[in-house]
Design a protein around this nucleic acid. Structure first.
Lengths: 340, 340
DNA sequence: CTGAAAGCGCTAACAA
DNA sequence: TTGTTAGCGCTTTCAG
């Protein structure tokens, strides 16, 4: 015999299926005689009854699942967020359906449709390249939604963002405290909001701290990649930039700097200090271990889950966004400048 | 109006819902007049009809989903496997439901139950610590299943395994070719099949190649972790072991060796060469970049998906297992020994 | 080739 | 407090 159905339980307990349903559902248990309820529960238990959420979903249009849209699971940023989300959901009895989009808007649309047709009750979207029309359409359709690491510009959706500006400021303050005055910034692509926000924050931090605000100390990377970072630093150095420290747009860009150091015999941190951003895994294994700004991915995930559950519970609730504080992880790649 | 239902389509096309169903389902389309079918399809298309897989699943007990059970998504081993699985499934129109178990057998059981109750048609299990009873029970229940990176011992389940033995042999051969004769092995935990298999392969490789088969050159790590690796290497060194190279059970263990090198002023590869296993991300960024055995995770995932789809398609098909060839990625942590 | 009718497992009125 | 009756959206006999 296959997994027993509600009817089997009802029959075995000598009650009607509806009564069994009520007894088994904590929310409606109050409507049922305490003894009957107890009996039904016992029978269900002994039969190993598991409610079929599919059948339930068909009736209630609720599935107990939410969709999590991630551009690329192999990017170490996302797994901790995904785990945080799972953790945040499980207390409420929800579970997450993860999908990869590979940053392809066609795939993304298909995946989202598939999630929706599986009756997810809401979406957590962590994509940077989300195609706007899709998001806006979903929002109009009233799909509960939370964005992670990105805020849409046209409309109001709750979002969870790392406080990039504060993070960059931490990095610059740290370098300034060590005595650096000529700090360069290898900004992330201007096509990403993150890149822009961090660059802007860098400039205000430099200004506020009264450091050398030389425009020739800033350059932009074409991609968030090691190779782009290397290219950018070479460009700066070849242009004769006089710098003692670098704030990289993210860790990969910082890794690119390491490559240039090796290539040109530059000592880090003696000649140039470097700060990354993200605190990817294994950064502490580099030589020197990379100082970087850490993002609490797991907490961000948990919070995203909470916001989404809130939105599902009360769709009229005004959308609330949260900015997460970051912290600086000081390792070996930063030190006082060797020269004045 | 919400997403249109089959009835809406049928009505708009002037046919009965049953006919519309047949026309829309490629498998039954033959039973319907070609023109009618065409018309229905056109109407469905123009209405933006999406079949509700939940309703369908209720009837057919098929859901188009498979469950993927992963111990820890933040372990860089697994994301590429997950992506491979997704890729392998998508062609067949299936999608994957990912769950984390955190290596907790209670969680694992709960997650698997939840997957099953969501009508997944099969399971890809990548857990090392899978509690046997669960697996065996699932197997008895006839749940189609594929194991990744592990073979159950009591019963027959298709599994995809990296050819660990061949990988270890590659590592040892590489070191032998460089002139090493006294090679140590920091084995993974004996509680894991991987740990045991690699250790055994190490010993036969050493023997076959006529190297020094000194038992004092082998030790076992309590965990697959950096810290355990460091502890193990210290133990060997403190015991006065005379070695010029180390084959580590995996990359994390190799990283532990790096820590000991730093701690004790040992030069790598000049004093001691190290080979890892897995080719985690960013190993090329270490100083020195780690030579390691690479596992084709993505391909393994794709193949796992294929095997599972096969098993779902024909549950009687005899279970087939595949051993995946590995390759050695030579980087800077291995070189000829400095002394004879 | 197409329609009618039943039912997958569950829940939500409504009635008793 | 419990049972009856529908029906979620779809597929699948079974007739016609």
């Amino acid at each position: 015999m296959q997994t027993p159905t509600l009817r089997d339980v009802a029959e075995a307990a000598g009650v009607h299926a509806a009564t069994a349903s009520r007894a088994l559902n904590p929310a409606t248990r109050g409507l049922v005689n305490v003894d009957t309820a107890r009996r039904v529960i016992k029978v269900a238990d002994s039969l190993g009854y598991r409610p079929n959420p599919i059948a339930r979903g068909l009736k209630t249009a609720r599935s107990g699942t939410v969709g999590v849209v991630i551009p690329d699971l192999t990017n170490p940023l996302f797994p901790p967020i995904a785990r945080g989300i799972e953790r945040g959901l499980e207390a409420a009895g929800y579970s997450a359906l993860l999908v990869n989009t590979d940053n392809d808007s066609g795939r993304e649309r298909a995946q989202v449709e598939s999630l929706l047709s599986r009756q997810v009750e809401g979406l957590i979207v962590a994509t940077a390249l989300v195609e706007h029309p899709l998001l806006e359409e979903l929002h109009r359709r009233g799909v509960p939604m939370v964005m992670v690491h990105r805020r849409p510009d046209g409309f109001e959706v709750p979002s969870i963002l790392p406080d990039d500006a504060a993070g960059v400021r931490l990095a610059v303050e740290h370098l300034a405290a060590l005595g650096h005055r000529r700090i360069a910034h290898l900004a992330g692509p201007t096509t990403t909001s993150t890149g822009v926000v961090r660059a802007r924050a860098f400039h205000s931090a430099v200004r506020d701290l009264g450091l050398d605000a030389d425009p020739s100390l800033t350059t932009t990377c074409a991609l968030w990649s090691e190779e782009s970072g290397a290219v950018a630093l070479r460009r700066l150095l070849d242009g004769g930039a006089d710098l003692t420290a670098v704030v990289a747009g993210n860790d990969l860009i910082a890794l690119g700097c390491y490559d240039v150091f090796t290539e040109r015999g530059i000592e880090c941190p003696a000649d140039i200090s470097v700060v990354g951003f993200n605190d990817m895994p294994f950064l502490d294994k580099l030589r020197p271990p990379l100082t970087t700004v850490a993002i609490p991915h797991h907490e961000i995930g948990t919070e995203a889950a909470r916001l989404l559950l809130d939105a599902i519970g009360d769709p009229t609730r005004p959308s609330r966004s949260v900015l997460f504080p970051l912290s600086l992880v000081v390792r070996g790649s930063t030190a006082a400048p060797a020269r004045g």
